[in-house]
C-alpha cells in the first residue's frame, strides 16, 4: 500500500470508527496492554498506546506487517490483524487516556 492510499484509507476508517466510538474495546485491543502499559508510571521501554494519534498506531502496524519497519516482536503480531481491525484498535487507543 502506498503512503497516500494508506493515509486516505486511514482517514476514512478513523472517521467511521470515531462516529461509532463505543466504550467496549474492539477485538484484539484488550491484549495490547499486556506489554503497552496503560499506566504511564510503569518503567518500560515499550511505548504506551493510550492517547497516541490513531494514524501513528495504524501506520506503525501497517509497516510492521509489510516489513517496512523492523521490530523484535510486533512484526509477528501485526500479521495477525487485518487493516480494518488494526484501524479500529488504533482509533480506540487514541481515545483512551
Amino acid at each position: 500500500m502506498t503512503g497516500m492510499r494508506l493515509t486516505a484509507a486511514l482517514a476514512f476508517a478513523l472517521a467511521m470508527t470515531a462516529g461509532a466510538q463505543a466504550a467496549e474495546a474492539p477485538a484484539g485491543a484488550a491484549s495490547c496492554s499486556g506489554c503497552h502499559a496503560a499506566n504511564s508510571r510503569v518503567d518500560t521501554p515499550v511505548p504506551p498506546l493510550a492517547g497516541r494519534p490513531a494514524a501513528d498506531i495504524a501506520t506503525a502496524m501497517a509497516e510492521y506487517k509489510s516489513g517496512a519497519r523492523k521490530g523484535t516482536i510486533m512484526d509477528r503480531i501485526a500479521k495477525g490483524f487485518s487493516d480494518v481491525e488494526t484501524q479500529a484498535i488504533a482509533a480506540w487507543y487514541a481515545q483512551q487516556k
Binding site: 499486556g34 499506566n39 510503569v42 518500560t44 521501554p45 515499550v46
Partner: peptide, 20 residues
C-alpha cells in the same frame, strides 16, 4: 539484548495492570 529489556518491561507492565 532488546528482547531481554522488553521482557523486564513486560513483567512490570502486566503486574502493574493486574495488581498496581
Amino acid at each position: 539484548a532488546l528482547e531481554a529489556q522488553f521482557a523486564e518491561g513486560w513483567f512490570k507492565t502486566i503486574t502493574g495492570e493486574v495488581f498496581g
